[in-house]
Design a protein around this nucleic acid. Structure first.
Length: 580
RNA sequence: UCCCCGGUUGUGUAAUGGUAGCACAGCAGACUCUGGAUCUGCUUGUGGGGGUUCGAAUCCUCCCUGGGGAACCA
């Protein structure tokens, strides 16, 4: 065995184990608890999908795929006040884009209203559900719970039974039918499960199953004036669909006994709920409520603002499904409440785009460079490699002339330590062009601004080669001024400077903590001519700057690019260090 | 207060009674026509105390600590 073989063996030993969910599923198959696997993605259509949902749905989907099973996309649409068809469409589009192919298994809890009603009737007939006349306030009080106030903590004594708890079954049946028929006003009655008002788990203290709510539902219209609650609807919808493993986030852990109770009492297919930790990412927020507010108050341009952690926003920003799936694979699945560093997400994007994105040259902060010894009126064409990581991508020709745009940062009147770009007397290579030496610069006498850099080029270095083997430390990018395409570059930063935006100091509205400098639009950037034909969604690497994705706001002759992520910037680190 | 669930390098995640590993981040170096990419090396960890055991991140116990729950939302 060679050394390298040994090394492979060691690496294999460090291979991550299978996660606890797949372990449990495998166990269920082994013991015969189930003989197939079916999961479900359970969105509520009340907002757009974000990366946290992507994590959950990917777990649902890939767990099913790994065991040769199926995965449903089921909309849990039982709250007509908040739900809307536009959300259904957005969620379906984003799910498919992520590579979650549920085929025709797109389902709606609202399609089960009749079945759920029948199951409720079954529970009433068994004597384990009853119609209650208590108000919401009274239900809370009878439950024996205090007002949830972190600063004023009180005991939770056993609850008291509702005076309507022991209504005869026939009366309950009659009342429930009349609730459906619309004989009672909103909020005047509920259907409750008869479990245990002294249960230590508060969700088991006779949870509400149905409420009266006269609200037009986006799918069922006015057909119903009673709507099922999540705790009742979810397990039974799972059962109706034959879902074996109902995977959800940790917040539902405490609901599992209730999930099991409904399944047992309704005598339906025994789906199993398993919980995992939801995703948190630094410097952003994965809360539908917060995201909705950002959109509604115009703090971002919409659900698909490139700064949003929504799938639509990330897609517009330039994230790829491959990068997102790679990220989700790397963060794993666990029950530990965690905060993933956003740099891991960015790393995954860079890694994907590095292999795929074509290289182009663009100058974001233009500074004129004049080649003093360039023959007047001459334009040359120079060959450039499209992607050094992918030889198949081939080459292209770049126009070159005596007046170029270079990056303002690539010239320094007085070079800082370890700076090896352009400064008086120094030589750099123009990428794929010539080696040039700085002879001077023009300066506005009033403002002190550098207006142009003057250089001479070495004609023997065409293409950027140094035939004399001379070492030129710096290579900078450029665009021929006469041939440049104007473009708009949109640079983005995190929406929140704080690592944990949710931890808002008391008395502060979180909206005030938004990073106001999180979007910078540069309208006077220049790029090589090939970018004129870019179309929306195309990703490029702007050499030495980062990955950019062509935005939907682009117009013919006026391309707009979003910076997806910058390149790793060693120079920035050096600068930062010497500044300290 | 009560009920439930967690705590493994800076971050995330493995190790399922038997050498605490991997990735990201960080640091140092090599290489380079992108200060990119790639490659090499390095630092840092089982929340604490007791117990069981030849052997404990893993089992028991107490403590500490973090999260969740007490909606006619999901």
């Amino acid at each position: 065995m060679s050394d390298s073989d040994k090394k492979d063996g060691e690496t294999a030993a460090g291979t991550p184990g299978v996660d606890f969910i797949r372990e449990a599923v495998a166990e269920d198959l082994r013991t015969g608890r189930y003989d197939y696997v079916r999961t479900r993605c359970p969105p509520e259509p009340n907002g757009w999908m974000h990366i946290g949902h992507a994590k959950a749905f990917s777990i649902d989907y890939f767990v099913a795929m790994d065991f040769g099973g199926t995965c449903n996309l089921r909309f849990d649409d039982t709250n007509p006040e908040k739900e809307d068809m536009s959300y259904v469409e957005a969620i379906q589009r984003d799910t498919a884009w992520l590579g979650i192919d549920v085929k025709d298994r797109v389902l709606f809890a609202s399609d089960y209203y009749e079945q759920l009603y029948e199951l409720a009737v079954r529970l009433i007939k068994k004597g384990v559900a009853y119609v209650d006349d208590l108000s919401d306030q009274e239900i809370r009080e009878y439950r024996g719970t205090a007002v949830p106030d972190k600063s004023n903590i009180t005991l939770t004594p056993p609850g008291r039974n509702s005076p309507y708890r022991d209504r005869p079954i026939d009366e309950n049946l009659d009342l429930f039918a009349r609730m459906r028929a619309g004989e009672f006003p909103d909020g005047s009655k509920t259907l409750r499960a008869k479990i245990d008002m002294a249960h230590p788990n508060l969700v088991m203290r006779d949870p509400v199953m149905y409420r009266i709510r006269r609200e037009k539902h986006y799918r069922t219209g006015d057909a119903w004036c009673i709507y099922p609650m999540y705790d009742f609807q979810h397990p039974l919808s799972d059962a109706i669909e034959g879902v074996t493993h109902s995977l959800c986030s940790l917040e539902y852990e405490i609901h599992r006994p209730l999930y099991d109770w409904f399944i047992r009492e309704a005598e339906v297919f025994p789906s199993r709920q398993i919980e995992f930790a939801r995703l948190n990412i630094s410097h952003t927020v994965l809360s539908k409520r917060w995201l909705l507010r950002l959109v509604q108050e115009g703090l971002v341009s919409g659900w698909d603002d490139p700064r949003m952690p929504t799938i639509a926003g990330m897609r517009r920003r330039g994230y790829t499904p491959a990068a997102i799936q790679d990220f989700l694979k790397r963060i794993g699945i666990a029950k530990t409440d965690s905060l993933v560093d956003i740099q891991l997400l960015e790393h995954c994007l860079r890694e994907d785009l590095n292999k795929k994105a074509r290289r182009v040259m663009a100058v974001l902060h233009p500074l004129k460079l004049i080649l003093e010894n360039w023959p007047a009126g001459v334009t040359e064409e120079l060959e450039a490699i499209n992607n050094p990581e992918d030889p198949e991508a081939g080459t292209r020709l770049l126009p070159f002339s005596g007046e170029l745009w270079i990056e303002r940062d690539d010239f320094a009147e007085v070079p800082p330590p370890k700076y090896f770009r352009l400064f008086p007397g120094n030589s750099v290579r123009l990428r794929y062009g010539y080696i040039v030496t700085c002879t001077g610069f023009d300066k506005d006498p009033v403002t002190g601004e550098i207006t142009a850099v003057r250089c001479v080029y070495d004609e023997k270095t065409r293409g950027g080669n140094a035939p004399d083997n001379r070492k030129v430390k710096g290579t900078i990018h450029w665009v021929s001024a006469a041939h440049a395409v104007s473009l708009e570059a949109r640079l983005f930063d995190s929406l929140f400077a704080a690592e944990r935006p949710m931890d808002v100091p008391s008395g502060v509205d979180w909206v005030e903590t938004i990073n106001k400098a999180s979007a910078e639009f540069i309208t006077n950037a220049y790029a090589e001519p090939s970018l004129a034909s870019a179309s929306s969604g195309d990703s490029y690497q702007f050499e030495r700057l980062g990955y950019f994705c062509c935005d939907q706001d682009s117009r013919p002759g006026a391309p707009v690019f979003n910076r997806s992520v910058s390149l790793r910037d060693t120079w920035a680190k050096i600068e930062k260090k010497s500044a300290q």
